[in-house]
Write a protein that binds this DNA or RNA. Structure first.
Lengths: 336, 336
DNA sequence: TTGAAAGCGCTACCAG
DNA sequence: CTGGTAGCGCTTTCAA
C-alpha cells in the first residue's frame, strides 16, 4: 500500500542505502544512479517518512511554540517572526495554545521528541520543573515572560520593560502629568512584574507623589484582556482617586480602559491620557489612536528562534533583552 | 542514556511486551505484575516514546489546524474550540499558521503522518490537489472557507453567510437605509464569496437600487485587515458615491472603515451605519460598539473537530452549516 | 561508488 | 496471564 524506500530501491535497481544517500545528499553518488533513483521517486510519488527518520536520526526537525494566550494579537506577530526564521532552516513548526493544560503539552514535547520549544507563557500556568524536565530530555528551550527562570538551563529573551516603563512615565511627565496611574495585569503575589518595578522606580525618581495609591494590580494572576482593562479603569474612576493619566500593561487593556473612561464621561485624551504597551496592530486604528511603548514583535520572534537554533547547534545558552520604542499617538496629550 | 521500555522490563522482571500491555491497558494483567511495572516506570521516570509508537500503530495521535491568518482574532477562538475538543480525546494538536507557504505544510502532514487536519484557509493560498493528496495518504481532512471543495473527499464546515448577509441587509433596510455599500475582502476573480452573493441577492430582492455600484471588492485575493477596511472605506468616500450604510466582510474591516469614515469627517452611526461579520471580541469594545453578524466561533471549532473525529473513526465524511446571529450594537442607527 | 545489515523503541501476533 | 519476536521505514557503519 504505502510506498516505501524499498519500493524505490527495487524500481531503481539499487539498494535502499543508496536511495537514502541520494535523497539526503549524504554521500557522493554517480550521476547515473542518482537519476535512476530520482526517476523512481518521481514515478512512485514517494514521500520520505519523517517518523521513521526521526527514529534513527536523533532529531525530529519539529519545533513548538507554546503560546499561552492566542487571543492576544501581540503574540500572533511573534509567532510569525519565529515561524519565518524556523522555516528557513527547514523546521516544521507548530504552535500550541495551551488553552487548557500547559503541563500536558510539555509532556507531549518529551514523548514526541520535539527538538526545541519556545515557551511564551506566564509562569503560573505551568510547573517550572516540567520545563527543566524538557532540557533533561535533550529538548532545547527558550523562554519569554519568565524572569525567574534558570538562565543556565534555558535560553531566554525578554523585553526591557523596566526601561520602557521609565520612558513612558517620563514622557507623560513631560506632558505635565503628575498623577499617573498604572493598571497592572499581573497580581503581585503570583509573578514578578517588570513594568510595575519600573513604574514604582520612575515615580519615585521623578518625585511624583502618587506612589502606590494609583496602582491597581490584577486580581487573578494574569488578567490583561480588554475586559480586564475596562474593569480596572472603571474601578479606578469609581474609587474617586484623582489622576490625569493611566498606563496599562498592554494595548488591549488600554483599549478597554478607554472605553470605560468614555463610559464614565471622561474624554481621552482631553480629560485623561492613556498609554499601552506592545503596539499591536489595533493600537494604530483605535480612536483615539493609542500611544504605546512598541515592541518589535516580528523581530522578537526571529531572535527567539536564533537563540534556540544556536542552542540546538552549538549548545550555548543565550539571553537577549530587547528595547522598546515610544509611539506617541492620540490617546495622550499635554495636561490642560 | 535514554530510558526505554527494555529498562523498565528488566527492572520489573518482566518482558517488554508485558510493559506495553500494562501501559496501554490492552490486555488483562495480574495486579501484582501491574504494580511491579508501574513502580519501575515511576522509579526510572520512564516516558513512552510516541515516535516509536507511531511507527507501529498506524496513528500519531497528532492533529493539525492550518490557519491561514493568525493575525485575525476570529480564528483564535475557533482554534480554542477545536483544541478543547481534541484534547478531550487525547490528541496532541498544533496549529500551523501557514505564514509562508501552505503547500509546504501540507507536504509535512504527509511526511509526519498527522492523523487529521482542519484547514481554514482561503483557497488561493494552496493547491487543492495537495489537499486531496492528503486524503490519498490516509490523512483525514476537514475544510472551512472553501465551498468549491469535493465533498466526497473531505469534511467541510461553513457559516451560512448568504443567509447572514440577507439578514444584515434587511436589518439595515429596516432602519431606513437604502444605499448600502458592501466592502468585500475577496477579489471575485479568485474566490467565490458567499457574502457577496447574498448581498447582491438581498439588494435586488428588497428592490434597493444600489446593485453593483456600491460594491467594492478586494484588490488582492484576500484583503480583510483593518488596513484594508480603512483603505476601501476611504476609496468609497472619495469616489463621491452616496451611501448611508456600509457592510464589511468582517469586524476587522469594519473597524478600519469606521476610522476612515471618521477621518473623512463622517460620524458613525449618525452619518453612516457600519456593520461587520464574526463578532470578534474587539467588536464589543470598539467605540462605537460594532453591530455585527456573530459566528459561534468556539462552537465552530468544536464542530470541526467532531467532523474530523467521526471521519477518522467511522470513515464518514460530514458537512455542517452554521448559522449566524445578528448583534445590533452602536455602529448602526436608524437613518435620519 | 555501492550494498548488507544492525538497530531506533514500540506493538501485537503467536506460543506457551 | 506472560514472553519471544518479527516487523514499522529509515540511517549509517562496515565491507566490498
Amino acid at each position: 500500500m504505502k510506498v516505501t524506500r524499498a519500493d524505490v530501491a527495487k524500481l531503481a535497481g539499487v539498494s535502499t542505502a543508496t536511495v537514502s544517500y541520494v535523497l539526503n545528499g549524504s554521500r557522493s553518488i554517480s550521476e547515473k544512479t542518482r537519476r535512476c533513483v530520482l526517476d523512481a521517486v518521481e514515478h512512485l510519488n514517494y514521500k520520505p517518512d519523517m517518523i521513521a527518520r526521526s527514529m534513527t536520526k536523533n532529531e525530529t526537525m519539529q519545533l513548538s511554540l507554546m503560546i499561552n494566550d492566542i487571543t492576544n494579537p501581540f503574540y500572533s506577530e511573534i509567532v510569525m517572526g519565529f515561524e519565518a526564521a524556523a522555516i528557513e532552516k527547514g523546521y516544521f513548526v507548530n504552535v500550541c495554545t495551551g488553552y487548557k493544560n500547559i503541563n500536558n503539552y510539555l509532556d507531549n514535547y518529551i514523548a514526541r521528541r520535539i527538538d526545541g520549544v519556545f515557551v511564551v507563557a506566564v509562569p503560573h500556568k505551568f510547573d517550572l520543573r516540567k520545563l527543566y524536565e524538557l532540557t533533561e530530555n535533550g529538548i532545547k528551550v527558550a523562554v519569554s515572560g519568565n524572569t525567574q527562570v534558570d538562565h543556565k538551563k534555558v535560553c531566554s529573551i525578554e523585553n526591557d520593560y523596566q526601561t520602557g516603563m521609565r520612558e513612558a512615565v517620563s514622557y507623560l511627565r513631560g506632558l505635565g502629568h503628575e498623577r499617573i496611574a498604572y493598571l497592572s495585569g499581573l497580581s503581585r503575589r503570583h509573578s514578578f512584574d517588570d513594568k510595575l518595578e519600573g513604574y514604582l522606580r520612575a515615580i519615585s525618581t521623578l518625585g511624583l507623589g502618587c506612589g502606590e495609591d494609583l496602582l491597581l494590580e490584577g486580581k487573578s494572576p494574569y488578567s490583561t484582556s480588554m475586559e480586564d482593562g475596562y474593569g480596572m479603569a472603571k474601578e479606578l474612576v469609581s474609587s474617586g482617586r484623582k489622576f490625569t493619566a493611566v498606563i496599562c500593561t498592554n494595548d488591549l487593556m488600554a483599549m478597554g480602559a478607554i472605553s470605560a473612561l468614555n463610559d464614565a464621561g471622561l474624554r481621552v485624551p482631553e480629560d485623561v491620557s492613556v498609554m499601552g504597551f506592545d503596539d499591536i496592530l489595533f493600537a494604530r486604528f483605535w480612536r483615539p489612536a493609542i500611544s504605546t511603548m512598541a515592541v518589535s514583535k516580528f523581530d522578537f520572534g526571529r531572535k527567539a528562534f536564533d537563540l534556540l537554533y544556536t542552542n540546538m547547534k552549538k549548545g550555548s545558552i543565550g539571553y537577549s533583552l530587547c528595547s522598546l520604542e515610544l509611539k506617541a499617538r492620540d490617546s495622550t496629550a499635554a495636561i490642560r
